[in-house]
Design a binder for these strands. Structure first.
Length: 223
DNA sequence: GTCCAGGGCCTAC
DNA sequence: GTAGGCCATGGA
């Protein structure tokens, strides 16, 4: 796959880093993921599937108020009750099963603590996460990067749209190829992967949505 | 009223 | 292997 257009500099490592630095200058350091604990980060990663974050925030606030941002309590609560608490995040019947499935997995395999996953190899954890119902590549990688500080680059719809519009790769590129692109071209630093993806999401909100007026000083217009 | 958001699963071909 | 349908709320 010839993803890069190195003749113009567009798509090469320097171009990516130039983009990264102009985004940070524009949006400021974002220090993701929004969440007080690693478990809350995982819950957010599941709840935000195909859903606006504003709707997820409401569901997380409800879970917090009910003291349910805890694997043991989430594992024990009846499914229907959990579904009612996360209604604002949409797809609540599916997502309640996914949350409970994740909580059960954590308890059965890692003593109910995200921290206990950290010593294990990224590949192993990723494989285990992908075996769970409702945890696909993006959710698994969000958990690995933002809850476990593992060095994986998260690809989302914004990433595909932004970089395909710039001609870096086709919009219908599959997840693993897109991930490989960034992990090959960027310096291998967790902090960079973390901040870059966060910046891309912020940019996506301005750049990708048809109904939203484009930001005049949007840094990517200049790239 | 219509569109769409920080996906993933299942089914049919 | 892949295209298409389905899941659902809430803000713009």
């Amino acid at each position: 796959m010839n993803c890069t257009m190195k003749s113009k500099g567009r798509g090469n490592a320097e171009w990516h880093m130039r983009m990264y630095h102009s985004l940070v200058k524009h949006f400021g350091e974002l220090n993701w993921w929004p969440g007080e604990t690693p478990f809350e980060v995982c819950v957010g990663a599941i709840l935000t599937q195909n859903t606006a974050w504003s709707n997820v925030e409401k569901a997380i606030a409800k879970l917090k108020a009910e003291d349910l941002l805890d694997p043991l309590r989430m594992d024990r609560i009846p499914l229907e009750e959990l579904a009612q608490h996360i209604k604002s995040s949409g797809y609540y019947n599916q997502k309640s099963k996914r949350l409970k499935g994740f909580a059960t997995f954590l308890i059965d395999n890692y003593g109910g603590k995200i921290e206990n996953m950290r010593p294990f190899a990224t590949k192993r954890i990723r494989r285990e996460l992908l075996e769970l119902n409702g945890i696909g590549p993006e959710t698994a990688d969000s958990i690995l990067l933002y809850a476990l500080n593992k060095r994986v680059f998260v690809i989302d719809a914004y990433t595909k749209r932004i970089f395909s519009r710039k001609g870096i790769f086709p919009e219908d590129i599959d997840y693993e190829n897109a991930r490989a692109h960034f992990e090959k071209i960027l310096p291998r630093k967790v902090r960079l992967y973390n901040e870059f993806h966060a910046q891309i999401v912020y940019l996506g909100k301005d750049y990708c949505r048809k109904s939203r007026p484009k930001c005049e000083s949007c840094p990517i217009q200049m790239l």
